[in-house]
Simulated assay, not measured.
Amino acid sequence: MKTEDVRQHLTTPLTSPAYAPTIPRFTDREYLNVVYRTDPEALRAVVPEPLRIGEPLVRFEVMKMGDVSGYGPYTEAGQAIPVSFEGEHGEYLHAMYLDNFPATASGREVSAYPKVLGSPSLTVDAGALVGTLDHGSLRVATATMGYKHHELDLREARAQITVPTFMLKTIPGYDGLPRVQELVRTRITDVTVKEAWTGPARLQLFQHVLAPLADLPVLQIVSASHILTDLTLSGAEPVHDYLKGAAS
């Protein structure tokens, strides 16, 4: 294979890429969001500068992807933290666990999503919307919300899921030091909110050394939402270079 041919390939392995070279379109993406108050010192320990924290809040989310171009259906769960950057309000994506390897690989390589493999689920059980996350055979999170108790304004639902998201992109060099270390920003586009609901909710987080969601403990439930939407994820753009000016 000639050099110019190699340069046309943007994924690995070279001849059998781990994910499709496409911008995924999400159809019937279903959210369970539970926003809770946590320990501010615990937040400060995990949110990187120059992001700033306001209220000590965390959004636990479970997302059931009805259909995704390039990947097919899958489910994802994680934590997002409200932050601001240079006056712009958004969320820092702290942790993401999903059951689809191509989506995991592309999220980390193409953008900077903090994705690892896990076993999340989103189901309805006896009048409750139930979101769970397992790591291996152990439960690490259980969220419950009253199923479609009260309609949520579609504009408010759209605002909840379209805030800018910030992520930390780190690529190690062969010397063991960071070769790339950037804060990047992305956002959701082409959004159609089909349904939106709110209601009472509860969230339990369980200690696990390899899935430390409980390091951001649940002190008080603030709000919950159940949203069904179609959307596209835009590409990531760097907004802060941690290595700029560092000694080589």
Rank of each mutant, 00 (worst) to 15 (best):
T229V: 10
L168S: 05
L210A: 14
Y242A: 08
A159D: 14
G146I: 03
A128F: 06
Y36H: 09
Y31H: 13
V209A: 13
K64F: 05
A128R: 15
E41W: 03
P114A: 02
D153V: 00
G146H: 10
E30Q: 12
Q204G: 12
L154T: 07
V180I: 15
Q204F: 08
T232D: 11
I221N: 01
L154D: 03
L98S: 00
S119P: 03
L117Q: 03
A159Y: 06
Q220W: 03
P50H: 00
P21M: 02
H9R: 15
M65C: 10
I227D: 10
V58L: 05
A141D: 06
V140N: 06
G107P: 03
Y242Q: 06
G70T: 08
L117M: 10
V58C: 03
A77C: 03
N33S: 02
L219F: 09
E49K: 13
G90W: 05
I227N: 07
Y36K: 13
L203V: 06
A201C: 11
H226Q: 14
P172V: 11
R185H: 10
T27S: 13
A128Q: 13
P178A: 11
K2M: 10
A95Y: 04
T192K: 15
G136C: 01
A112L: 00
A20M: 08
G54M: 01
K169D: 07
L133G: 06
F26A: 03
P178Q: 08
P238A: 11
P56V: 04
D39I: 04
I227K: 09
R29N: 11
K244P: 01
S84C: 03
L117W: 00
D153P: 00
S223Y: 10
V222H: 05
P48S: 04
